[in-house]
């Protein structure tokens, strides 16, 4: 007797928990005739809840020491390594060859470790002591932007997600990510990895669903400080830029099509979501005996 197949329901990830979408809706992406799973079709309210979670996680995550954030990112890579078989299997299920799938998982792990290493180093690169003509010690130091909306790349599942999210959280930002619409399996499984590593709940929130439905809210929400768009759709880019104006969102439009290229391993991706703060600190004297500091 043939048995009835059980299709896994992949849930979304908000504030360290795995709720179903509040809307109760789902969709079933397919690879050919093969259904991949039941995937939540997130609503704007799921996004709203995710922003609340991301905002409340921001203080603690951005306040953690850089060294600690580095350890946490490294831990994600370790946990991913431990579950590599599941990821390879899912990537194959989504239509890739075995060798491609292995390459994707390996590169993803390496890329997480790459950004883990930058956590306590980017600030030295991007900060400066500035020469000024008054008796001030003038310095510029980077701070994380805040809550970031992310459209993860559509062309791939795991590697695109990792490459877009890791540089954002490396500096202490928190984010709400809309996973790839047609290949969302790895994104949800990645959320399970995040949940079992040391990433505090709310730092990365993962939604699944349609760009067309969520774009408006992800770009206009006043409590979101920045938007990372990965893709090339002119209409989407224009809409995001227009909607983001109300609170002057920092909007980054990136082409993630050559995902294995080393251009995606760069501290400038971290800099994309940093705000530079310049401090004028009065000093007693700058004289013949040297400066006051």
């Amino acid at each position: 007797m043939s048995r009835l197949e059980i299709l896994k329901t992949y849930k979304i990830y908000i504030g360290g928990k795995f709720p179903r979408t509040e809307s109760g809706r789902f969709y079933t992406p397919k690879n050919g005739d093969k259904a991949l799973g039941n995937i939540c079709l997130s609503s704007r309210k799921d996004f709203r809840n995710a922003v609340v979670a991301a905002r409340s996680a921001f203080g603690k995550w951005s306040g953690a020491t850089a060294y600690n954030r580095s350890q946490v990112l490294y831990r994600i890579a370790e946990m991913l390594e431990g579950r590599r078989a599941q990821f390879v299997e899912e990537i194959i299920l989504q239509g890739s060859k075995k060798a491609e799938a292995e390459k994707e998982v390996n590169t993803s792990i390496d890329r997480i470790i790459y950004y883990a290493g930058w956590c306590d180093k980017y600030s030295q690169i991007f900060s400066a002591v500035n020469p000024v003509a008054t008796s001030h010690f003038n310095f510029t130091a980077p701070e994380p932007t805040g809550v970031v909306s992310v459209f993860a790349p559509e062309e791939n599942s795991l590697i695109g997600l990792v490459s877009s999210v890791m540089p954002i959280i490396a500096s202490g930002n928190t984010c709400v990510v809309l996973a790839c619409e047609n290949m969302p399996l790895c994104a949800v499984t990645f959320a399970e990895v995040l949940n079992s590593s040391d990433v505090p709940g709310g730092v990365i929130n993962l939604l699944t669903g349609k760009r067309s439905e969520l774009l408006e809210h992800m770009a206009s929400h006043m409590d979101v400080n920045a938007f990372l768009y990965t893709g090339t759709d002119k209409k989407e880019m224009e809409a995001i830029q227009k909607l983001g104006v109300a609170n002057l969102k920092r909007i980054q439009l990136k082409d993630f099509s050559k995902i294995y290229s080393s251009e995606h391993e760069t501290p400038y991706y971290i800099e994309d979501f940093l705000e530079m703060k310049t401090t004028w600190h009065p000093i007693e004297k700058i004289g013949a005996t040297g400066s006051g500091y």
Binding site: R48, V51, H217, S220, H221, M222, D223, A246, N247
Partner: peptide, 9 residues
């Protein structure tokens, strides 16, 4: 307005 608001404002 249809736009989610922030405490900042």
């Amino acid at each position: 307005t249809g736009i989610y608001q922030s405490k900042d404002y």
